[in-house]
Design a protein around this nucleic acid. Sequence first.
DNA 1: GCTCGACATTAACATAGGTAAGGTCGTTGC
DNA 2: GCAACGACCTTACCTATGTTAATGTCGAGC
Lengths: 247, 247
Amino acid sequence: MRRPLIRKLEKFARLSHADKEMLVKIAAQRVRRFSAREDIIHEGEKPEFINLINEGWACRYKTLEDGRRQIIAFFLPGDLCDLNVFILQEMDHSIGAITPVVISEISRAAFDEMTIGHSRIAQALWWESLVAAAIQREWTVNLGQRDALERMAHLLCELFIRLEAAGCTSNSSCEFPLTQTELGETLGMSTVHVNRTLQELRASNLIVLKDRTLTIPNLQALQDVALFNPNYLHLDREGRHLDANEE
Amino acid sequence: MRRPLIRKLEKFARLSHADKEMLVKIAAQRVRRFSAREDIIHEGEKPEFINLINEGWACRYKTLEDGRRQIIAFFLPGDLCDLNVFILQEMDHSIGAITPVVISEISRAAFDEMTIGHSRIAQALWWESLVAAAIQREWTVNLGQRDALERMAHLLCELFIRLEAAGCTSNSSCEFPLTQTELGETLGMSTVHVNRTLQELRASNLIVLKDRTLTIPNLQALQDVALFNPNYLHLDREGRHLDANEE
DNA sequence: GCTCGACATTAACATAGGTAAGGTCGTTGC
DNA sequence: GCAACGACCTTACCTATGTTAATGTCGAGC
């Protein structure tokens, strides 16, 4: 088993054996499967659970009255949807599967059980939700300031680094299930321009993207094109520099 | 005194007298003043406090290496910066004053004092932070899908409704301190185009904007232009429809 | 092996919005 | 009283990106 959540949280907090057992237990409860392109929860419904993505890619999206669709966030293995969502009366957006997806639903009670008496987990979960907020902010910068090429490069850098943190990459490659239409809905550009932009990145040898597999031969080079600064992902563990026994 | 925080939180939760006293007390502690355009906290610094805006407008922003600046969020009276920020090692963005600003710094200890034993306050604060996240998501939609006119109209609707919730409007008018440059940095467009867009809204009698005062004669009409759906602001109090004694 | 649908690609043309440059006006400082 | 400045406004021109539509590729099912 891969346990991407544990893998990711350990980037931030040192988890005890008991902490990890608790996380394994939570991930094994209330498991649900969705097929590709199926909605996990839809705008207007009342959220009853925090969703934990165990396998597959999902996304948050919103649709305007006239049909335009914007993808607002991607959920990768190990990602949690929204701590505390229970508080809200209804969803103001939808969450849909990109690939076939396996999730665990976490109830309010399960969340309390998981955090009370496990302060490291609680801290790590708040960290993860602060990072999610930081990612959303960076997307605002991306859409507001970067041009198409920079925007695409930035998204690819971010996804690759997040997948790496969840243990879903090998060397410089990862699975990449997004269609060009979905990339367009994410980056606020037409599919035609998505295509042009990908061609340009390929022509500069910055990416290889074929058969749903993305390879980034030189991540630093791609980051340079994107004006990508990884600080917003906060992947520096608290006190990391103080500890000699790092993996 | 205006107490915009209490005013806003009451849109969501029914606060007891003791709850309100606690909020008044918190807002009176560690008060700091900043002049217009001064930074409140800068990218790279370690966040030690949650900032509560008592008076004035502030913004979150990020600057790219080459100088492009994106405003990521506005903080209006009654807004809180980020619950739980203490967890992060360093700020990945800056917060700056737009107008002269009065804030209260809330330490971790003060935050605990304010929430433990005041579950209504705790709930209301989580609600406020979920709304802030929803606003950030809506900005993503705004930048990704709406054109310049819709985008501007949407921002104006949002700001007006948020100011209303904080008690900072009178009839259909509010103070509006943003320059056209700042609007451009918010909406990802040039000042020239901001100007064109404002002219267009004025010509359609959708707004009056003069001498730092914004008037929206027909909010519904502006919302229609913007494809504005207020659901993301979650201004519907839990159980509101069950209670006869609403103000 | 054929057909179909999903996705990718390409070209020709159209336009929203950017850039550069300059002008007006009101406020502040001296 | 006037220089300096910042906000706002305007015009002319240019380009990044959108639109439309035709064509190509490939895997799934029959």
